[in-house]
Design a protein around this nucleic acid. Structure first.
Length: 496
RNA sequence: GGUCCGAUGGCCGAGUGGCUAGGCUCAGCUCUGCAAAAGCUGCUACAGCGGUUCGAAUCCGCUUCGGACCUCCA
């Protein structure tokens, strides 16, 4: 690849940091479990998709050609804690008096809007469960043929105990089948199953069910875990490089996926690297709808939520999340958001200043360690996508840029260009940060020239040592949200 | 109850055997007409108790506290 710095990834399956070696470089196949589109996504969901956005961006940055598949779950996800629960989409459709596909469309649109606002890249393929009913039925047939599935009253279940005789079940989540048996609650509506550990591949639908399809077993719908097995196989093959998702999907969802894929093909887990993003917490507790501590991105931006002192911009939130490592829990708080906001502001101003940074034509006195910066950035991302370390290096670059701007350090034209390449690469491409707000001295419409005029009048007053006029102009502009800065090269203004 | 994870300075948050993480806050200083911005300096921490080691925030054991999963969840 374009970069020789090795990439290490923490593999959930081995619980170790492993050197990343794709099956078919320069191609990389990555599958990430997407949202169930029955309600608005909240900030915790955003964190997971941001995590894999970084993985996707960095792999692309390294020169890999990534096929990134992220699904939309639009059927099969049941409410409640038993397999008798209602389909989430179907339930919402009933409550809102809409066609199920209207629900799906509505919340898929919302999801896409949110992803755009946070500058999270689109996947290469975004398949939906309902678009792959035929393939899911086929995989169920394969599983039955291999003896790992059985039919009961028109539903089909996966025989976990039988599977465990041939393959290790529970490896990913570190569970033993006996422990699971001892600790599984006895739930209602499981009489069809041979064993409480078994999970549904196909569910027979009752008359009131809105979403159902014909199958060899009954008119019904696929089990939740099946879609990911089917769609990852269809678009990435049986064996592919990276499978990602939130930590809370490890068990049972991903464990079931592994079992289904192995059960259908007779080959064990064939995902190279399992990655799990950690949870966003509020006051130390996982953000979740059921906890009532979740808020939507829209509430976050407007500040219209009891937990929020005020609104925060999407880039502030993105930056805040990237200041923590994806594998650690991250605790949300207003103080932390405000700290991130200020830090990002300083970083952005520096990035903006880079373009017009004065550079010396000769290399004589310039001795800026750009190579060192580049290596430190590469090392940070190569160590399991350590964005906090990367950001700390970027802040060292901020210090350098400020020093050059204030004339304390000189930089050559070549070094400046190297630095610009570096910042463009890591700030914009890898971290996916964007400059927010209007740039210094720029304004749409007539305000810009008028502001320039006021600043000029104030400068004139200053040269006449008319401090009261100068200060009253500065105060008046400040009240309008425009900050004046006096530098060696004259005064400039900046709208907050 | 079972399994697993975590506890870092005023706050957030990296770091896994010796070497300054970083951001924010606070105080002082430089610059400046005054500010702002920027820079410099300071506040220098690893839950507690034992152990291993020349040396531990980092390894091992115990204790306390917190969290996640075990059921839908990013």
């Amino acid at each position: 690849m374009s970069d020789h710095t090795p990439l290490y990834i923490q593999n959930s399956l081995s619980r170790e940091k492993e050197l990343f070696t794709p099956l078919n470089a320069p191609y990389v196949g990555m599958y990430v479990c997407g949202p169930t589109v029955y309600s608005n996504v909240h900030l915790g969901n955003v964190r997971t998709f941001l995590t894999f956005d970084i993985v996707y961006r960095h792999l692309s940055f390294l020169g890999y050609q990534v096929r990134y598949v992220r699904n939309i779950t639009d059927v099969g996800h049941l409410t409640g804690d038993s397999d008798d629960g209602e389909d989430k989409i179907g339930k919402k459709a009933r409550l809102e008096n809409l066609e199920p596909m209207e629900i799906v469309q509505k919340y898929t649109n919302d999801f896409h809007d949110v992803m755009r606002v946070f500058n999270i890249e689109r996947p290469s393929i975004e398949p939906s469960a309902t678009g792959h009913i035929v393939e899911q039925i086929e995989m169920i047939k394969q599983i039955i043929e291999r003896g790992y599935g059985y039919e009961a009253n028109g539903s089909v279940y996966f025989n976990v105990r039988k599977f465990n005789e041939d393959f290790p079940y529970g490896q990913l989540s570190g569970r033993k089948i006996d422990d699971l048996l001892n600790n599984t609650r006895v739930l209602d509506g499981q009489d069809e199953k041979n064993d409480p550990l078994d999970f549904a591949l196909w569910k027979k639908a009752d008359a009131s069910h809105l979403m159902k399809w014909p199958s060899p077993w009954s008119e019904g719908f696929p089990g939740w875990h099946l879609e990911c097995s089917v769609m990852s196989t269809k678009y990435l093959g049986h064996a592919f490089d990276i499978h990602g998702g939130g930590m809370d999907l490890k068990f049972p969802h991903h464990e079931c996926e592994i079992a289904q894929n192995a059960g259908a093909t007779g080959e064990g887990n064939s995902v190279g690297y399992w990655m799990h993003g950690n949870m966003l917490t509020v006051n130390g507790r996982k953000m979740a709808k059921s906890e009532g501590n979740g808020f939507t991105p829209d509430e976050l931006i407007t500040g219209n939520h009891p937990l929020l002192e005020r609104g925060y911009s999407p880039m502030t939130v993105r930056f805040f999340m990237l200041q923590g490592h994806y594998a650690s829990t991250l605790d949300f708080s207003n103080a932390a958001l405000q700290a991130a906001e200020k830090g990002l502001d300083r970083l952005m101003k520096s990035v903006e200043a880079l373009e017009n940074l004065p550079a010396t034509s000769a290399d004589d006195n310039a001795n800026v360690p750009i190579e060192d910066f580049a290596q430190r950035c590469a090392n940070a991302m190569g160590d399991d996508f350590n964005t906090p370390i990367l950001i700390s290096v970027l802040f060292d670059a901020v210090k350098l840029i400020n020093n050059v701007q204030d004339g304390r350090t000189v930089i050559s034209q070549a070094q400046k260009e190297a630095l610009e390449t570096l910042i463009n690469g890591y700030f914009f491409e890898v971290l996916g940060l964007q400059i927010e707000g209007s740039k210094e001295g720029e304004e749409s419409g007539e305000a810009g020239p008028l502001l320039d005029l006021l600043v000029q009048l104030r400068s004139d007053a200053k040269s006449n040592q008319d401090w009261s006029t100068a200060d009253s102009i500065r105060k008046a502009l400040s009240d309008l949200g425009v900050t004046i800065k006096d530098g060696k090269e004259g005064s400039s203004w900046n709208r907050e």
